[in-house]
Nucleic acid binder design. Structure first.
Length: 871
RNA sequence: GGGCGCGUAGCUCAGUGGGAGAGCGCUCGCUUCACACGCGAGAGGUCGCUGGUUCGAAACCAGCCGUGCCCACCA
C-alpha cells in the first residue's frame, strides 16, 4: 500500500459519501463499463430497458426504488461477466411537456396559438435541450449504471420511424380506424384522453328529479340527473322493458322541458327499475352509457357542450355559458315552471383527468382508435403460459382479467407536442393516406394534402420502448444482442398503461415478448402513510436523501423497505444504510491497515486496457485451520449463496438485511473481536482469511452499495481493476463447515451468557473474574471476550453459568449473585414446566414428528440438569 | 358493485404449522488502541376480535371489526 493510501486510511474515520461518489462515478464512466458491445445473444446477455421518465420529470422516490432494484440486477449480471445493457432514455410526455412550455409562454404574455404550431414545437425542443437532461443527471447521482452513451428519446428520429411503422402496419391490418365516438374530453389539456388516464373520485353533487310531461297525456315521467344542463341534449327517455308501470308508455313520446323537443320513450335493459322512478333520460352526446344506448337504438346524438367547456350553439339561449352557469340557469328555469320535483345531496364517483386534474367532459368527437382485442390474444397467452412471468403472482391475474376485457384505445390527442399522426387527407378527392414518409401529393387526384393535426397518445410510443430503443425497425446488432430484455420492474399503476401494451407490441412487431420477467414492486408512501405526491406536498426528495446520507444509504434503505406490500418511507432504514456504509469503511480500515497478502500473491495496479471481466478473483482462497476462521468462511459462503438466491428472486429486502447481519454481527461483532490479538500480531493466516472475506463481501454488496464498496476496494491489495467489473462471488461449498459453526456459535452463546451474568450481578465492566471450567473447554475467545479467567484454583464456586463455575472474588457481591441465581432458577422452572406439559400431552408424543419430540426431551433434560446444579 | 392487500414490541416492518424477530426509539453500563453513524447488557408483545381445524395456530379455514389500493357505464 502506498504511503498516501495508508495515510488516508489512518486519518479518515468517518465515511464521507459526498467526497467519494462523484469521483467514483467518473471512474466508472471513464472505464466505459456501462457501455457493452452489441455482441452475443439475448439469452447470453442481460438487458433492461428503464421505464422512461418524463423529460419534464425530476427523480422521485419511485424512480429511486425502481432504479435501485434494476441497478442491483444489472450490476450483479455485469460482474458475472455478461454483456449487460441498461438502456436509458426519456419520454416526451406530450401533455406534461406541452403544459410546461405553455406556462413559460404565458409568463411572457403569449400563448401557443400566437406562435403557431411550428414555432411552438420548436420552442418545446429548445426547452428540452436546456432542461431535458436533468433527470438523466439525477440517475447518475443514484449511481445507476445505465448506458449513458445509448440514451434515447421517444421523439428522436429513429424512434419516430418506429412509431410510424407501427401505426402504418396497425392501420393496414384494420386495427386503427377513425370514428366519431364518445371520448373522455379533458378540458384542462384540451384533448381527448384514454380510459386509463381517467381517475374516478368521490364527489358530492346534487341529484335533481325533473318531470318530463308525456305527450298527449297528463302523466309525467320523472327522471333523475346530477347534470341537468345536459338535458338540453336529451334525445330519449328510457325505461326497463320489464317495468309494468311504464309498459303502456313505451313507443309514445314525452316533451323535453325548456327545449320542447319530442323524445321517444324507449325500453332498455340497462335501466334499473329500483333507481329513482325507474325512468332514465338519455343524452347520447354527453354520457357514455347513454351513448351506448343511443347507438343501439339509433338515437340522434346532440352536443350542447363544446371542447372549451362552454355551451354550444345547440344549447340555444344557453350558448356561451360555462357548464356550471348553464346548470344554474336550467335549474332556475325548471323551478319556475314547476318541473323540478326535488333536489338532494348525492355522493357519487366522477371521472377526472389524471393529467390536468380537471373533471372529464364526456363528449362525442372524431378521433383515432386502435382496436386491441386481436393484439391482446397472444399477450394473454404468453402470460398464461408463463413465458412472461409476473411477480408477485397476484398481478398475473389482475393483468389477465384486464386483458380479457380490453376495449379500443383512443390514440389521438389534440396536442402539438408529440408524434403527429402520419395520416394525410386530400380535400379535393377525400382520399386518406397513411404513410411512414410524408407523401408528396394525392395519389388519386394529385391534389394537395394536409396532415392530420392530432398527435399520438404518449403511451403509443412508450409501448414500443424495449425494441424501439434498440434500433427497430432496423435489424440492428443491439436488437439481436439485447432483445428480448431480461427483466422489467414497474409500479403497478402502469401495469395496463405501459406493461401490457409493451407485451402486445413486442409480440406483434419485434417477434417476441419484450421481457421474460416483470416484477411489480411496492409503493413507498409518505411517512404518514399518505401517497407521496407533489401536489399534496408529501413527496420526499431522493436527492436530498443522497446529499445528506449518500446514495448507498438511500439504495440500501429503499431496498430494505421494499416488500410486496406498500410501506411507509422509513428514515431509520436509510440511516441503517448510512451506518452500514460507515461501518464497512471502518471495518475495512482495520483489516486493510493490519493485513498483508503474501509477497508473491499481491498484484500491481491494473493496466488501463485490461479486459476487466477476464480478471479473476484476486485474493487466494485461504486454507484455515482454526475453528473461528473456518466458522467465518463458512458463514461468508452461506451468506453469499443465500443473498444471491434472494437477489435472483427479487427478494431485495431480505437479501440486503441478510448481508447486513452477516457483516455486522458475524464479521464485526464476533470475528474481528475474536481475532484482534492475532491481527495485531500480523499473523498471516488471519490476513489471508480477512482479505479474502473482505474481497468477497465487497463484491457481494457492490450491486446494492456500489460507491462505498468501490472506494474501499481501491485500497485492497488484491485489486486489479474496478469492483464494478469484478467477478461476482459464487458460494464455495467446500468452505461450508457445520462443525466449526456449531463450536463457535456455542462459544458465542456462552460468552453472551457470561456477559449477561456479569451485568446482572453488577460487576464493573473492566474487572476480570475467576472461574473454572467443568467439562470440555470452550473456544479460547470466550474467556477474553467475557473477561473471565478459567484457570482459578481452590475455592468453592459461588455460581454456575453453563460449564463455567464462578469462583468468589472481591468484586462479587454475594447478595447480588444470590438474586441472580434465584432469577435463573425461576426461568428454568418455567421452562421445565413448559417442556413437561408438552411431553405430558399424549397427542403430542404420539403424533408430532419424532425429531420434534426428541428435541423437546433433550431440552427438558438440559433444563433439569442446570436446575439441579443451581440447587 | 367486483377484486386484491393489510392489521405482530412505542414507531416502521419481517416472520406462513413446532419455544415471538429486525432496525429505530427507550433503560443501564462503557473515552475497550476500526467505527459513539460505536461497544456490551436489558426492558417492552393476550401476534385486531370471535369461532373452527390440529397433538400443537401469529401462521390454515369461516365470520366480524378496522384500514388501504385497483377495477366497474346505476342516472
Amino acid at each position: 500500500m502506498s504511503a498516501a493510501d495508508r495515510e488516508k486510511l489512518e486519518s479518515i474515520t468517518r465515511y464521507d459519501p459526498a467526497e467519494v461518489e462523484a469521483r467514483v462515478f467518473a471512474e466508472w464512466m471513464e472505464g466505459g463499463y456501462f457501455h457493452p458491445p452489441a455482441e452475443g445473444t439475448a439469452d447470453e446477455n442481460f438487458s433492461i430497458a428503464i421505464p422512461p421518465p418524463n423529460v419534464t420529470g425530476a427523480l422521485h422516490m419511485g424512480h429511486a426504488l425502481n432504479g435501485s432494484m434494476q441497478d442491483a440486477l444489472v450490476r450483479m449480471n455485469r460482474m458475472r461477466g455478461r454483456n449487460s445493457l441498461w438502456i436509458l432514455g426519456t419520454d416526451h410526455a406530450g401533455i406534461a411537456t406541452q403544459a410546461v412550455v405553455e406556462k413559460t409562454l404565458k409568463a411572457e404574455g403569449k400563448d401557443r396559438h400566437e406562435l403557431g404550431r411550428e414555432a411552438f414545437v420548436e420552442r418545446v425542443w429548445e426547452w428540452k435541450a436546456e432542461y431535458g437532461s436533468r433527470i438523466v443527471e439525477q440517475y447518475k447521482r443514484l449511481g445507476a449504471s445505465c448506458d449513458y452513451e445509448r440514451e434515447r428519446f421517444t421523439l428522436d428520429d429513429g424512434y419516430v420511424r418506429a412509431v410510424y411503422r407501427v401505426f402504418k402496419q396497425l392501420y393496414d391490418k384494420g386495427y386503427i380506424y377513425r370514428d366519431h365516438y364518445m371520448v373522455n374530453w379533458d378540458p384542462g389539456s384540451h384533448s381527448a384522453i384514454s380510459d386509463l388516464e381517467v381517475e374516478n373520485r368521490e364527489v358530492e353533487d346534487s341529484l335533481y328529479s325533473i318531470d318530463y310531461p308525456v305527450e298527449g297525456s297528463d302523466r309525467v315521467l320523472t327522471v333523475a340527473t346530477v347534470r341537468p344542463e345536459t338535458m338540453l341534449a336529451d334525445t330519449a327517455v328510457a325505461v326497463n322493458p320489464n317495468d309494468e308501470r311504464y309498459a303502456d308508455l313505451v313507443g309514445r313520446r314525452c316533451v323535453l322541458p325548456l327545449v320542447g323537443r319530442r323524445l321517444p320513450i324507449i325500453a332498455d335493459e340497462h335501466v334499473d327499475v329500483e333507481f329513482g322512478t325507474g325512468a332514465l333520460k338519455i343524452t347520447p352526446g354527453h354520457d357514455p352509457n347513454d351513448f351506448e344506448i343511443g347507438r343501439k337504438h339509433g338515437l340522434e346524438e346532440i352536443g350542447v357542450i363544446g371542447p372549451d367547456g362552454r355551451m354550444t350553439e345547440e344549447a340555444g339561449e344557453y350558448a356561451g355559458l360555462t357548464v356550471g352557469e348553464a346548470q344554474q340557469k336550467v335549474i332556475a328555469a325548471l323551478r319556475e315552471q314547476g318541473l323540478l320535483r326535488s333536489e338532494e345531496p348525492y355522493v357519487h364517483s366522477v371521472p377526472f383527468s389524471h393529467r390536468s386534474g380537471e373533471r372529464i367532459e364526456p363528449l362525442i368527437s372524431l378521433q383515432w382508435f386502435c382496436r386491441m382485442d386481436e393484439l391482446a390474444k397472444p399477450a394473454i397467452a404468453v402470460v398464461e403460459r408463463d413465458e412472461v412471468r409476473i411477480t408477485p403472482d397476484q398481478w398475473k391475474r389482475v393483468y389477465l382479467d384486464w386483458m380479457r376485457e380490453i376495449r379500443p384505445w383512443c390514440v389521438s390527442r389534440q396536442l402539438w407536442w408529440g408524434h403527429r399522426i402520419p395520416v394525410w387527407y386530400c380535400d379535393a378527392c377525400e382520399e386518406t393516406i397513411v404513410a411512414e414518409e410524408p407523401p408528396t401529393g394525392c395519389g388519386a387526384c394529385g391534389g394537395e394534402l394536409r396532415q392530420e393535426e392530432d398527435v399520438l397518445d404518449t403511451w403509443f410510443s412508450s409501448a414500443l420502448w424495449p425494441f424501439a430503443t434498440l434500433g427497430w425497425p432496423d435489424q440492428t446488432p443491439e436488437l439481436r444482442a439485447f432483445y428480448p430484455t431480461s427483466f422489467l420492474t414497474t409500479a403497478r399503476e402502469i401495469l395496463f398503461l405501459w406493461v401490457a401494451r409493451m407485451i402486445m407490441t413486442g409480440i406483434e412487431f419485434a417477434g417476441d415478448v419484450p421481457f421474460r420477467d416483470v416484477y411489480v414492486h411496492s409503493v413507498i408512501q409518505a411517512r404518514d402513510g399518505r401517497r407521496m405526491s407533489k401536489s399534496l406536498g408529501t413527496g420526499i426528495d431522493p436527492l436530498e436523501e443522497i446529499d445528506v446520507h449518500g446514495a448507498d444509504a438511500l439504495r440500501f434503505g429503499l431496498l430494505a423497505m421494499s416488500s410486496t406490500q406498500d410501506v411507509r418511507f422509513s428514515d431509520a432504514k436509510v440511516q441503517q444504510g448510512r451506518d452500514l456504509a460507515n461501518k464497512l469503511w471502518n471495518a475495512s480500515r482495520l483489516i486493510l491497515l493490519n493485513c498483508e497478502l503474501e509477497q508473491d500473491q499481491s498484484h500491481p495496479k491494473p493496466p488501463q486496457d485490461q479486459a476487466p471481466a477476464a480478471v479473476g478473483q484476486g485474493t487466494p482462497t485461504p486454507q484455515p485451520v482454526l475453528v473461528e476462521d473456518r466458522w467465518l468462511l463458512s458463514r461468508l459462503e452461506q451468506t453469499i449463496a443465500s443473498v444471491t438466491a434472494k437477489l435472483e428472486s427479487y427478494d431485495f429486502a431480505h437479501a440486503v438485511t441478510e448481508a447486513y447481519s452477516f457483516f455486522w454481527r458475524d464479521l464485526c461483532d464476533w470475528y474481528l473481536e475474536i481475532v484482534k490479538p492475532r491481527l495485531y500480531d500480523g499473523e498471516p493466516e488471519v490476513s489471508a482469511t480477512l482479505l479474502y472475506a473482505l474481497e468477497r463481501l465487497l463484491a457481494l454488496l457492490h450491486p446494492v452499495m456500489p460507491f462505498v464498496t468501490e472506494e474501499i476496494w481501491s485500497f485492497h491489495p488484491a485489486r486489479r481493476g474496478h469492483l464494478a467489473v469484478h467477478p461476482f462471488p459464487v458460494a464455495d461449498q467446500a468452505l461450508f463447515d457445520r462443525s466449526a459453526e456449531a463450536d463457535v456459535e456455542s462459544g458465542i452463546e456462552l460468552t453472551q451468557r457470561l456477559r449477561a451474568w456479569r451485568d446482572l450481578v453488577d460487576v464493573p465492566a473492566a474487572s476480570v473474574l475467576v472461574a473454572v471450567i467443568d467439562g470440555v473447554s470452550p473456544p479460547e475467545f470466550v474467556s477474553r471476550l467475557s473477561r473471565f479467567e478459567f484457570d482459578g484454583v481452590g475455592a468453592e464456586p459461588v455460581a454456575s453459568v453453563g460449564p463455567v463455575r464462578v469462583l468468589p472474588s472481591e468484586e462479587l457481591d454475594a447478595a447480588a449473585v444470590a438474586v441472580r441465581i434465584e432469577k435463573r432458577r425461576e426461568e428454568l422452572r418455567s421452562e421445565v414446566q413448559r417442556a413437561e406439559r408438552k411431553l405430558g400431552n399424549e397427542g403430542f408424543v404420539a403424533k408430532a414428528p419424532v425429531e420434534v419430540v426428541e428435541e423437546e426431551r433433550g431440552k427438558l433434560e438440559r433444563y433439569r440438569a442446570e436446575l439441579e446444579e443451581l440447587s
